[in-house]
Computed example of a mutant assay.
Amino acid sequence: MAATSKAQCAKCEKNSGILTCDGCLVKFCRRCFNDHRQDLSKELDNVVYEHDMVKQQLETPNENDCHNLFKQIDKWKKDSIDKINQLADQCRTDVVKLLDKNKDRLMDRFLKITNRVRKGTDDEDYDERDLSKWINDLKELKDELIESSNFRVEEDKQQSSWIQKITVHEDFRDQLKAKDGNL
């Protein structure tokens, strides 16, 4: 009879490999096979733990501050508000400059009215028409001081992309994977 050579245990290399693991197709002796099964049992415990963690996340209601998509939306909102605040500050600065410039122009008109009133008073050379004209001029000046008619604030309808609109989309590839159960 011919002697048959037995395969050695892949783990300890001392004993004969009499049992083969169907998963990894490695031959083990009885003792190493039992150790291998214990290692697999520990790995199964890890799988069960990860499974339970994913299940817990799936069962927990979505919270607005934890998901990355919500963080992206919040960042867009903050950046957009910052842009609006910067533009509003710039517009306020521009309005102050225009008001100052307008006030200087109005002051010149006021001084001219003042000179005419003083001259009329000093010369005692005025009548009802002059008084009416001076009152009208002062009223117009006062109205322009309160509400300037030579400038205004308006929206630029042409620049719609100043604040980028965001939208939420579902990736088509992920939909296919979910249908196939590969996700």
Rank of each mutant, 00 (worst) to 15 (best):
R152M: 11
K133N: 07
D35M: 07
D122I: 00
Q175S: 05
D35W: 06
R31M: 08
Q90I: 04
V48F: 12
C91D: 07
D171V: 13
K165V: 00
C32K: 05
E43Q: 12
K11H: 12
D82N: 09
A178F: 12
I135F: 09
T167N: 14
I135M: 08
V117A: 05
L183Y: 05
L25P: 04
T60G: 01
I81Q: 05
N115I: 04
M107I: 00
D122Y: 03
T20V: 15
W134N: 03
V26R: 13
D100G: 12
V95K: 06
V117T: 00
E128K: 06
N136T: 10
K42F: 10
K165H: 08
F28Y: 15
K112R: 02
D180A: 15
D35Q: 10
I135V: 04
H51N: 13
Q8D: 14
F33C: 02
A2S: 13
C29K: 00
L141C: 04
G23V: 14
D79Y: 02
N150C: 11
Q56R: 01
N64G: 15
R152F: 05
E124V: 09
C12E: 10
K119Y: 07
V26S: 14
D180T: 08
A7R: 06
K179T: 11
D174S: 11
E170W: 08
F110Q: 03
D171A: 12
K97E: 04
L98I: 00
K55C: 02
G23R: 15
E124D: 04
I166C: 11
Q57T: 02
E147G: 00
N64L: 15
D104G: 04
K6H: 12
K27S: 13
N34P: 08
V26L: 15
L106H: 01
E13M: 10
E124Q: 11
Y49F: 14
N46K: 11
Y126A: 01
A3H: 03
V48M: 07
H67C: 01
L176S: 07
V117Q: 04
N102R: 05
D65I: 09
K27Y: 02
E154F: 03
A88K: 09
N182E: 15
E63W: 01
V168C: 07
N15H: 10
C24H: 01
K142P: 09
